[in-house]
Design a protein around this nucleic acid. Structure first.
Lengths: 114, 114
DNA sequence: ATATTCTACAACTGTTCGGTTGTTTAGTAT
DNA sequence: ATACTAAACAACCGAACAGTTGTAGAATAT
């Protein structure tokens, strides 16, 4: 909490960068997969139905943001979530999204209400 | 937490959209300002040193995402944070960013260590 | 009514960024 | 050494987006 209130631009940029690192569908899927434990690029490529280069690129973004870390073992590179705080953040957002979805269904399904 | 684990694409998109709504410097500044209470577009324009149209546009994005809400009073439109969860999220991220900054300073200031 | 103030909308521009393709590096096996 | 696998790097293309400019709508004042 010792952050100054009129946040300096540097800090603001860092925060924005962090949010944008997470705010991409493929990267969210990667994080969702990594929640169950570390995985190699090949694992993620198969599980997500994306190209290897694409997955590798997104992993690079997440690694640069300090959210995931690499561990080399022989031929393969294992990725794992390093910053555990993203999990709690995602849970919070998921909760809000759930609530929004419920509202949407309530609004978009008037047939069941009349 | 009743969200299915292999998250469906729709949900993933919603989550990503939400993160991207926050992941922009100007919008973070707006939210930081709104933390102290509601404000008009003119207030924000003055306080943030940005154009009125620009501020209004960003407020529109935040409103579409359901993060802020409007309240009209005569000539002016007051904006306020509606989704309180973004505050806790921002605090978490700020904490992580702080930690990163401390690490950076430790790494980039070796003169004081030798 | 007209003028003024505050806000939102529309069109344009430059940049950013995601995805694909092709290539390259690192490690292992034969 | 060559051959093979795994992962990363580089270049391109197209879509999305932030910021500016100009304008339009809504409320108040004269």
């Amino acid at each position: 909490m010792p952050l100054p209130h009129p946040l300096p631009d540097e800090i603001v940029d860092l925060i924005a960068r962090r949010f944008r690192a997470i705010g991409e569908p493929m990267r969210i899927k990667i994080l969702d997969r990594l929640r169950t434990g570390e995985a190699t690029v090949a694992d993620l490529t198969l599980g997500l139905g994306a190209g290897q280069q694409n997955v590798s690129k997104h992993l690079g973004v997440l690694a640069d943001a300090g959210i995931v870390g690499r561990r080399r073992e022989g031929n393969k590179v294992f990725y794992a979530i390093v910053d555990e705080s993203v999990l709690s953040i995602c849970e919070t957002v998921c909760g809000t999204v759930e609530q929004q979805l419920r509202e949407l269904h309530r609004l978009l399904a008037p047939t069941a209400q009349r």
